[in-house]
Amino acid sequence: MASFIDPLITFVSAHPWLAYLTLFLAALLEAVPVVGSVVPGSTIILALSALIPGGELKLGWVLLAAAAGALLGDGSAFWFGHRAQREILNAWPLSNYPRLIAQSEAFFHRWGTLAVFFARFVPPIRAFVPMTAGALGMAPLRFYAVNIPAILLWAPAHVLPGVLAVSALHEYAGLPPHAGIAKHYWILAVIGGALIVALVTWTIRRRHGGMEPTAEQVRKDFR
């Protein structure tokens, strides 16, 4: 992974507008079913956030790019599911991931509407839950009422650990905040963010209990 991330950081640090575009696409693709299971979107976001203390990127634009990509990705997946209904869950390529689809439905049975909120912090079902929500008949207003606050918390949770880690190195290790230094410490950003995501994931899964729903039970959660 480092062989891929290091050249990426080096390149985008010299082209800020490409960095923001990369952040946007990373967040968007992470929300696409199947694709989101293999694209290291969270890792890319955490790594690029390490460029903020050195001045290569601006915190506000990083947060905006990540949130906008996640919103477009989640929203597009939801509307695909909403229009196609449950048939899309049995169509290719989702038919190749029955376990993840079952986990997504189980999430709704356990958490109801709040499944949309919690799933944003739980890979890899994060990429499947929005489409599943649409396919199971969740009302659009209810989806966005939960999805938008989740994204507004998810973006800082992925960006700020990198900022804090590199800022601490500048402050306490005496490292100068010049351009390019952050790329050597992106792994600290990833570790910090991973710890946050792991804590949320553990909490949710501990309460989840592995209950498998029926389609009718899942539909009742949206009424």
Rank of each mutant, 00 (worst) to 15 (best):
A2D: 15
S3M: 03
S3P: 04
S3F: 02
S3A: 12
F4Q: 04
I5H: 00
L8W: 01
L8N: 02
I9H: 01
T10L: 11
T10W: 05
T10I: 07
S13L: 09
H15D: 02
H15V: 04
P16F: 05
A19K: 09
Y20R: 12
L23M: 11
F24R: 04
A26H: 10
L28R: 12
L29V: 08
E30N: 08
V34G: 12
V35L: 14
V35M: 06
G36M: 06
G41M: 04
I44H: 04
L46F: 10
A47H: 04
A50T: 15
A50C: 15
L51Q: 04
I52N: 09
G54D: 11
G54E: 15
E56S: 12
E56I: 07
L59Y: 09
G60D: 06
L63D: 03
L64Y: 00
L64E: 01
A68E: 02
A70N: 10
D74I: 07
G75Q: 03
G75F: 06
S76L: 15
A77T: 08
F78N: 12
G81N: 08
H82Q: 01
R83W: 14
A84H: 09
A84M: 14
A84E: 14
Q85M: 08
I88C: 15
L89N: 09
L89C: 11
N90G: 12
N90Y: 02
W92T: 01
P93A: 01
S95F: 01
P98H: 01
R99F: 04
L100C: 11
L100Y: 14
L100G: 00
I101R: 12
I101K: 10
A102N: 03
A102T: 14
A106N: 14
V116Q: 03
F117K: 10
F118I: 15
A119W: 10
P123S: 13
P123K: 07
P123H: 05
V129A: 13
P130M: 03
M131W: 06
P140I: 11
L141C: 00
A145C: 11
N147S: 12
N147A: 11
A150F: 02
L153S: 00
W154N: 07
W154E: 00
A155P: 03
P156L: 08
P156F: 02
V159G: 03
G162S: 09
V163T: 01
A165D: 02
V166L: 12
S167K: 11
A168H: 05
L169N: 01
H170G: 02
E171Y: 06
Y172K: 13
Y172T: 04
A173T: 03
G174Q: 06
L175G: 00
P177A: 08
A179I: 12
G180F: 01
G180I: 04
I181A: 06
K183P: 05
H184L: 07
Y185H: 11
Y185R: 05
I187E: 02
L188Q: 00
L188V: 05
A189T: 04
A189W: 08
G192K: 15
G192N: 12
A194R: 05
I196C: 08
A198L: 13
L199I: 10
T201D: 14
R205D: 14
R205G: 02
R207S: 15
H208Y: 10
G209Y: 06
G209F: 06
M211E: 15
M211R: 14
T214W: 08
A215R: 15
E216N: 02
Q217G: 15
Q217N: 09
D221V: 08
R223G: 13
